[in-house]
């Protein structure tokens, strides 16, 4: 077991970065949910994935995480096709957190076991991660009894504890109070500064401005903009991005 942990530390050449999507399209019911999307994630930095509801943000993350097979195009992790063995190197915080029917601590330990930590290091790391997320006093509570914000925090702490190379966070702070949001932003910054690539979907423009180094703007399944955050927010090139940032319904006449 110890060998396995050591192995995974020296297996850096076997990583999943750069994570590359090339020409990805996903069609459902005659509609293009993703339309020829190409992008590369290489760490470390924080990328904000923006776009209105239904733009295809969640679908894009699921394709890149190898959860959905694209109809055309390819996904490559570290130069090779994705595989289950390297899946734990990608952390995914889903829009709706999935809480196992176990205690908070057991949820934490389950994930650590799944990525190959032995029993002793599991306990240590689990408690450390719970303290991080200020969830240690709830350790023995059944996870599904936590409030929405606490569940979201647990989902993030669960992913952080596995120290992935890249993290996807799908609207991690929607519905959270200011303190929880600040905590989550701190966790994301901490992960990025430790070398994890962070990709976050958010509708909180102020948050995106605070966090993001670069921005991907998705509109009806197409990447319309991909560039440094400052230039995106100060001078968005596409009309759709200007509409989105201004909170206008696309293509509606200005009142």
């Amino acid at each position: 077991m110890l060998d396995r942990v050591r192995m995974s530390e020296t297996e850096d050449h076997d990583g999943i970065l750069p994570l590359v999507g090339a020409g990805i399209s996903v069609r459902r019911n005659g509609r293009n949910l993703l339309d020829n999307v190409s992008l590369t994630f290489d760490g470390p930095a924080i990328t904000a994935l923006l776009g209105s509801n239904g733009a295809g943000k969640t679908m894009l993350l699921r394709v890149l995480a190898n959860l959905v097979e694209p109809d055309t195009g390819t996904v490559q992790w570290g130069g090779r096709s994705p595989d289950a063995a390297r899946a734990p190197r990608l952390g995914f915080v889903f829009q709706k957190p999935v809480m196992l029917r176990r205690s908070v601590l057991a949820n934490m330990k389950y994930v650590l076991a799944a990525v190959g930590h032995d029993r002793a290091s599991r306990t240590d790391r689990a408690w450390k991660a719970l303290r991080w997320a200020s969830l240690d006093r709830l350790a023995s509570t059944p996870a599904r009894l936590l409030s929405g914000g606490e569940q979201q925090r647990l989902a993030i702490a669960r992913v952080m504890a596995t120290e992935p190379e890249i993290m996807f966070l799908d609207e991690p702070s929607s519905g959270l109070d200011l303190a929880s949001t600040a905590l989550i932003e701190m966790l994301m910054r901490g992960a990025a500064s430790r070398g994890t690539k962070v990709v976050v979907v958010t509708h909180d423009i102020a948050q995106a401005r605070r966090l993001a180094d670069d921005v991907i703007f998705l509109h009806q399944g197409q990447v319309l903009e991909h560039g440094p955050a400052d230039s995106f927010f100060d001078a968005p090139k596409s009309k759709q991005a200007r509409d989105y940032l201004a909170g206008r319904i696309p293509d509606s006449p200005t009142l």
Binding site: L67, A84, A87, V98
Partner: peptide, 16 residues
């Protein structure tokens, strides 16, 4: 359906 994607991103096989 609730668990599947969460378990798959952890690399869980059919047995797990």
């Amino acid at each position: 359906p609730e668990y599947e994607e969460q378990l798959r991103v952890l690399g869980a096989g059919p047995f797990a």
